[in-house]
Structures are given as structure tokens and as C-alpha cells.
């Protein structure tokens, strides 16, 4: 979980960085350039496959971990006060991950399928920026995306620092730093992502 998780975190940085180009508010010019580069560069396209492998491994491993851990306690407690000893999101990684997976299916259907499996964007009929504009016209989709980013924030809040602990990277000097960076990363990245549908919907970006 740790290795694939950290790999997916690096993907989030790239994804967030490219998409943040919409905030230049230049009618999507720089964003469309970025999207075209990501869609055509052979190295990126290869990494896309690696990314999917990483994502699938993360999901499969997460599921088997959930099953194994569920079996480790066949008879549950009548009363268990988890709040007394741990954070709710640390105990809910499976549920948060499942929510994110459901979001990802919708999200991929919105943008990835259009740009890879139809010729709408490659033929120049449509740009990815306009596609974003169109999708985020619906308020319920904006709400869905924002809620998904809340899930992502909590998933990262546990996952970021947990990955380092799993890999044995615990150190008196560096662990507080890792935890601090993890905390802010978990807030800033989902916040930037969440601002995208909001800005599009309310026409802050034209």
C-alpha cells in the first residue's frame, strides 16, 4: 500500500499542477497545451499504463488487506471506543478509498474516456477546457467533485505519513517534518482540485 500510495501521490502532484493551468484564466490556452502534451508525449503515455497498474495494485492490495484484517477478528466487540485511541479517518481508509474509486470511475468517464477513446479532442472539434466547462455546468457534479476531494483529503491525511511508517522511515528528526508536510499536502492538493469545478461553475474562469 505504501509504495503504490506514494506513487499515486506523485501522480496527484503532476495532475494538480497541469490542471492548475486553468487558473491562468486565458480561456484554457495554456491548459489545452498542457493537456495536448500529456496526451501525445510517448513517455507520458507509457507512464499512464504504469499509473493504471499502480492504481489497480493499490485497490487490489487494499481489498485483500481489508479482507485479511476482517478475518483477524471474527467476533466483533459489542462496544469499541475507537475514538479514544485513533483518528476516524485512520480507521476508515477502506471506506474513503471505496468512495474515491467510485469518484474515479465517474471522473474517468467525464474526461479520460473522451480524450483517449473519442476523436473529439484530437480532431480539434473540442478542447479539454471546453469539456471541463460543459461538465461543470451541472451543480450536482460540482458538489460530487468537492465531496470526493474531501474524501481525498482525509485519505491522504492518514495515507501520506502512514506510507513512511510502513516503509520503516521513522526518525526523531524527520518524522515530525513528514507529518507536517503530509498534513498540508492533504489539504492543499484537494483544495486546489476542489477549486477547479467551483471556479468553472461560477464562471470565475472564462
Amino acid at each position: 500500500m505504501a509504495i503504490t500510495g506514494l506513487f499515486l501521490i506523485t501522480f496527484l502532484i503532476v495532475h494538480c499542477g497541469i490542471n492548475a493551468l486553468i487558473f491562468f484564466n486565458d480561456g484554457g490556452e495554456s491548459f489545452n497545451k498542457g493537456a495536448e502534451f500529456m496526451g501525445t508525449n510517448p513517455l507520458i503515455r507509457t507512464m499512464e499504463i504504469v499509473l493504471f497498474i499502480g492504481l489497480i495494485l493499490h485497490i487490489v492490495k487494499g481489498f485483500s488487506l481489508w479482507k485479511q484484517n476482517n478475518n483477524a477478528r471474527p467476533i466483533k466487540y459489542a462496544v469499541q471506543n475507537g475514538a479514544a485511541n485513533s483518528k476516524w479517518y485512520s480507521r476508515s481508509m477502506g471506506i474513503l478509498g471505496t468512495l474515491l474509486l467510485m469518484f474515479l470511475i465517474i471522473h474517468l468517464r467525464h474526461f479520460w474516456v473522451i480524450s483517449r477513446f473519442t476523436d473529439e479532442i484530437t480532431s480539434g472539434k473540442e478542447t479539454l477546457f471546453n469539456e471541463m466547462k460543459e461538465v461543470f455546468e451541472h451543480l450536482w457534479i460540482v458538489v460530487l467533485y468537492v465531496l470526493a476531494m474531501v474524501s481525498l483529503a482525509y485519505h491522504l491525511m492518514h495515507g501520506f505519513q502512514s506510507a513512511f511508517q510502513t516503509l520503516g522511515l521513522n526518525h526523531k528528526k524527520y518524522t515530525p517534518l513528514i507529518k507536517g508536510v503530509g498534513f498540508w499536502f492533504s489539504i492543499i492538493i484537494p483544495f486546489i482540485f476542489a477549486m477547479m469545478p467551483i471556479a468553472m461553475h461560477f464562471d470565475f474562469i472564462k
Partner: peptide, 8 residues
């Protein structure tokens, strides 16, 4: 079970 670093 496996450790998921909840810290409990």
C-alpha cells in the same frame, strides 16, 4: 491482522 498505522 496487518498493521494500518492507526496508532490505537
Amino acid at each position: 491482522g496487518s498493521c494500518t498505522n492507526t496508532g490505537a
